[in-house]
Simulated scan of single mutants.
Amino acid sequence: MKAWVLGIGWVSAAGIGRGRRGDRFAMAAGELPELSRRDIFTEPYPRFGRLDDFSRLGLAGIALALNDAGLDRWEQKRNIGIFAGTTRGCLETDRAYYDTVIPDGGALASPNLFAYTLSNTFLGEAAIRFGLAGSNLVLNDSDPAAFSALRLALESLAWGEAPLMLAGICDLPPAAGAAGASGRPPGAVFLVLSRERSASVPPLAEIALDAAGAVSVDAAGVADWPGLVQACLQPEEEIGRDCP
C-alpha cells in the first residue's frame, strides 16, 4: 500500500509550521506555543477560542496540513477522512472537568469542559470547519512510535473508502506529576494523503506500507513520526513553487 503526501502541518515545542513553506520541523520536549485563531485561520472563528487545549492543538494541525495541500477552502462536503493517534488523549481536559465536578456535589460542573471530555471532539470540529465527510477515528497509541493512524489511513485509501485521508498524532505535555507520561514529544502533526498522484499539487513524498507493516518514505524506512516527517520534507528550492 502506498500514498502521496500532499501537505504537512504541525505544532510542536519548536513552533508552528507547514511543509511547503520550508518551515523548520522538530519535535522535542518543551512547552507548546500558545495558539490563537490568527495563527491558524485568517477569518474570524469564534469557536476556536472556546476549545480545550487538546482540541485546539489537534484542529490546528489538521488546518495547517489542509492549508499546505491547498484543501482548506470548500463549497461542498468532501469525502476526506481523519485518523489520529494519541498516547494521552484529552486526559488533562478530563482532569480539569472533574476538578469542577468534585466541589458542591457537581453543582458547578463546567458544561464547556464537559463538551471536550472525548478525545475525538476535535475531529468533529475539523469536519464541520472544512466540510470533511469521511471516516474519522482517534486511536490510543500505547507505543509512542506507533504508526497506527497512518496504517489505517493507508488501508482506507487502498480499499477505496476515500480518495484523500488525513493521518497524524496529537498529544499535550503531561501535567506535572502525572503518571504514565509518554515518550512521544508533545505536539500535533498531520499529513494529507492521496491515493493518486495529483497533477495539480506536486507531492512532497511517497509513503508506503509493506506486508510486514513497515513504513517507508521514498523507499527509505522510518521508525517514528518525527523521522517520518523529516523524511517527507524537502529543501525549499525542491518544492514546487506553483503549489499552494
Results as ranks from 00 to 15, higher is better:
T87S: 08
D104P: 00
D99T: 10
Y98W: 12
Y98D: 08
I102R: 03
L51W: 04
A115I: 02
F54A: 08
A109L: 04
G58T: 06
W74I: 03
T100N: 00
V101I: 14
A84L: 09
A109D: 09
V101S: 01
G81S: 01
L118N: 15
R73C: 12
N67W: 05
C90G: 05
T93A: 03
W74S: 15
C90M: 05
Q76K: 08
T93C: 04
A84N: 12
L108Y: 14
V101C: 04
N112S: 14
T117L: 07
T100S: 03
G89T: 05
S110I: 07
G81K: 00
Y116D: 14
Y98G: 02
G61F: 06
S110H: 05
D99Q: 14
T117F: 06
G89Y: 09
R78K: 06
N112H: 10
N120C: 03
L64Q: 03
A63H: 06
D53N: 10
L57T: 04
A107W: 09
E75S: 15
S110G: 08
D94L: 10
A84S: 14
G70Q: 05
G81N: 02
R78P: 04
Y116E: 14
L57S: 06
W74D: 12
L59S: 08
L71T: 13
L51C: 04
I102A: 10
S119A: 15
K77H: 13
A96F: 06
L51P: 12
L91I: 13
T86W: 09
G106E: 11
D72L: 09
G89K: 01
A115N: 13
K77Q: 11
V101P: 00
F54L: 03
A107V: 15
F122G: 03
D99C: 10
L66G: 11
P111V: 12
K77R: 11
G105K: 00
N120I: 02
G85Y: 13
P103W: 02
N120R: 02
L108W: 12
N112W: 03
I80R: 00
G89C: 04
D68T: 14
A65E: 05
N79E: 11
I80A: 01
L66D: 09
K77N: 13
L51T: 02
D53A: 15
L113R: 08
I82W: 10
R88K: 05
D53T: 06
G70E: 00
K77V: 11
Y116A: 13
L66M: 07
Y98K: 06
G106H: 01
A115P: 14
G85N: 05
T86N: 01
L71A: 12
T100W: 07
G61W: 10
A60S: 14
P103L: 03
A63F: 07
R73K: 15
Y97L: 10
L51E: 06
A107L: 14
A69F: 04
Y97P: 09
F54H: 12
T93M: 07
D52G: 08
R56L: 05
L66I: 15
G81R: 00
L91R: 11
S119G: 03
T117K: 02
Y97A: 02
T117V: 12
T93G: 04
N120T: 08
A69C: 06
